[in-house]
Design a protein around this nucleic acid. Structure first.
Lengths: 203, 203, 203, 203
DNA sequence: AATGAATGAGCATTCATTCAT
DNA sequence: GATGAATGAATGCTCATTCAT
C-alpha cells in the first residue's frame, strides 16, 4: 500500500493509521507488530523507534479515539448551544454512530478490562471523562430549563452512557435478535433513554 | 498431585471452577489450557480427558452461566406471577446482580465477539434468548394491564437488556466515575429504565 | 462398529483387523493407539494387554501380510507346478495386485526404512524372503527347461522384485503420468520384466 | 551460537543441508523443526526467518534435488547426443547413483505419498517429469534407429523408471538380500531393464 | 480381562522484543 | 532513521505409555 516511502516523521502517523485499519479489519487479537510492520513495508523494529511498546501504540490510539469523539461532541455542542434536548439527542446519536463506525476502536476504548491494559495510565481515562461531562452539561441545562428531570446530573449522565454503551456493545457483539431492525433498535434505545429523563407533561 | 486430592469426576468440576477464576483474574485473552492446568496442579493433557477442546470447556462454562441466570429468572417469575411491574424490576436487579457476582461468566456470556468464539453453536445462543423472552413477557403483561407503554415488546425488551448490559459492562470495566456510589448508579439505571416504559400518570 | 462385545480372546484378532482397516483408511501416520481403541470401543489400555507396544502390533501386522502374500504365492505354485513361465507371470501379477489392494499394508511391509521400525527383528525379514525364493525357483526351473536365461537366480529374482516393487510404489505414490492407463502400465511392466529373462528365439 | 559462525545468508544453506542430513538419519517422519533448530544451534524461530513453513523448507529441498538430477541428466544428454543406447544406459546408472548418493532427497522426491505432502504444488511435480521425458527421448530415438523396440515411449519410459525406482528403493530400505553384491544387483537390474527393450538380434 | 486417570514429551507456529550494525 | 538476525516464551493439541484398581 505504501510503496511510496513516507518522508520524515510521518512514519508515526502512518503506523497509527495502519494500526487502526488493521484493528478494524482483523480485530484486536489478530493485531501484531509484525503485521503492522508488514502492512507499511517497514521492519518490525522500526515501529519501536516511534512507540515504546505495543501497549504504548494502543494507548496512543485510544487517545486519538477519545479526542475524535470529543471533537465530534464539541461540534454538536456548537450546533445546539441553547437547545439542550436537541443537543442531548444528537450526542446520543453521535456516540452510537461512532461506536458502530469504529468497532475495534470502540473495543480498545471502552471494552478492555483494566487488567488487560494495565499500563494505561488512569490519568488518561480521566481525560476520556470529558465526553461524559458534555452529556452531563446538556442534562443540567435541560433541568434548568425544566425540560429534564434530573436528580444528579453526574449519575444521570453515566446512566445514559451506560444505555448507549450497552446498545453499541450488543450490536457489535451481534447479540441483538436478528429479527429486530437495527435502526429501529437504535432509535428505540435513544428515544426511551431520553424519555426517561423528560419532564412529564401535566395536563 | 493436586493439593486437595480430588476423587473421581470432581476434576471436571475443579477445571470448570478454576477456569472461571482465571477468567476473572486474567481475562479471556490470557486464558490458556496450560495456565488452567498449572493452577490445578495437573498436566495440560489431563484437561483434555474432560473437555474435548478449549472451546468445549468455555462452552460448558457459558452453558452453566446461562442456566444459572435462567434459574434465577424463573424463580423470580414464580414470585411475582401476576405483578408484571414488580417482576420486571426484580428481573433487572437480578441481571445486574448476576453480572457483578459472576464477572467471569459475564464476559464469555455477553461480551465475546462472535469471531472470537465462532464455534459456539448458534443454537445455544438461541437458548440464551429465553432470558430475554422473560423480560418481554413482563413488558407485554404490563402493557395489557395498562401500566407499561410498549410499542413492540421484543424491541423494548432488547432495549432494556442493552441498558442493563451497559450498566454491568461499565461497572466491570471500572469505567464508572469513582465518585459515583455504585448502588446509587445501579438504582438510577434501573429506575430510569423502567420509568421510560411506564405509563404516564393522568391526573 | 463393534457394539456387540467380542468374547474371549477374539480381541487380539479384532485389534489386528481394525488396525489394518484404519491403516488403509487413514494411513500410517494418522494411526494412533487412541484411534484404534476408539474404533473397537475398548480403552487404549486394553490394547496393551494383547500387544506390548505399537511397534509390536505393527510387526504382527507385517507378519500377517507376509503370510498372506506367501499363501497367495503358494497357491499359485500349486496351480502351475510345472509351468515356470506361467507361474512366474502369475506371481508377478499377484504381487502387484496385493500391493494395490493393500496400500498401507504394503507401506509397512516394504517401504518402511529400518531406522523407522528399528525393533522389527531381522529374523522376521528373513521370513519374508520366502516370497523371493518362490520367484527364484520359478526362474531356476525355467532356466533348466531352457525358457529363461538366468545367470544367478537369486540376483535375478531380486531384480524382478525390484521392478515389481517400483511399479507398485509409483502407482501408490500417484507418481505415474495420469495420461497413462494403469492397466497398460502394469501389463507393460510385467511383460517387459519377463521378456528380459526370456530366451531369445534363434531362427 | 552456531559452532562455526555462519555469516549472513548462509543460514539458509545451513538449514537446508542440516535438514537433508536429518532426513537421512531419522527419516521424514521424525523430522521436526525443533530438531533441525537444535542441530544447528539456533532457535526454532530462526528457521522461520528463512522458510515460511516446514512444507516450504521441504519443497525447497525437493526443488534442489529435482534440479540436481535434471542437471546430471542434461549433462549426459550432452555427452551422447546421437548414441541413444549409451545415453539410456548412462541415464539409468545416473538415476541409481543419484538415489543412493542422496537418500535424503530421494525419499521426499519420490517416495512421499501425496497426502503426506499435499501442499506441494502439482505444477512442481510436472516439472519433475522433465527427467522422465529425457528417458522417453532416448527410447524414441533408439526406436527410430531400430535398436529399441518400443510400442509407446511414454509408457516404456515409466516402466524403466519403475525398475530403477524399485532398485533404489529396495537398496535404501535395506531389503536386498545381504548375500547379494550391491554392484552385481545394480548391474543386473540395468542390463535386464535395457535388454527388455533391445531389438533381438537377427542372425 | 479391562479400564480410568494421568503424564511428559513432542508438534508447528506466532509473538513482542532486543541488539548490533 | 532503519534494519536483519535472533530469541525465549507461549499457544492448542496429540501421542504412546504407565499404573493403580
Amino acid at each position: 500500500m505504501s510503496d511510496v516511502p513516507t518522508s520524515n516523521g510521518d512514519l508515526r502517523r502512518l503506523i497509527l493509521d495502519t494500526t487502526r485499519r488493521l484493528l478494524v479489519k482483523e480485530g484486536y487479537h489478530n493485531l501484531s507488530m509484525r503485521k503492522i510492520a508488514q502492512s507499511i513495508n517497514y521492519s518490525a523494529t522500526s515501529i519501536y523507534l516511534h512507540f515504546e511498546s505495543k501497549d504504548a501504540l494502543l494507548h496512543a490510539l485510544i487517545d486519538e479515539g477519545m479526542q475524535q469523539l470529543y471533537d465530534a461532541f464539541t461540534s454538536i455542542v456548537g450546533q445546539f448551544p441553547d437547545r439542550p434536548v436537541k443537543r442531548l439527542r444528537a450526542l446520543c446519536e453521535q456516540f452510537i454512530t461512532f461506536g458502530l463506525d469504529n468497532p475495534e476502536y470502540y473495543e480498545i476504548m471502552f471494552q478492555l478490562r483494566p487488567e488487560q491494559m494495565e499500563r494505561y495510565p488512569a490519568e488518561k481515562y480521566r481525560r476520556a471523562r470529558r465526553n461524559l461531562d458534555t452529556i452531563a452539561e446538556a442534562l443540567a441545562e435541560g433541568a434548568d430549563e425544566g425540560v429534564f428531570e434530573v436528580a444528579d446530573a453526574r449519575v444521570s449522565a453515566s446512566t445514559i452512557w451506560a444505555s448507549l454503551h450497552g446498545t453499541v456493545s450488543l450490536l457489535l457483539a451481534e447479540r441483538v435478535d436478528i429479527r429486530i431492525d437495527q435502526n429501529d433498535f437504535i432509535e428505540t434505545a435513544i428515544r426511551q433513554t431520553l424519555r426517561s429523563y423528560t419532564t412529564r407533561a401535566v395536563a
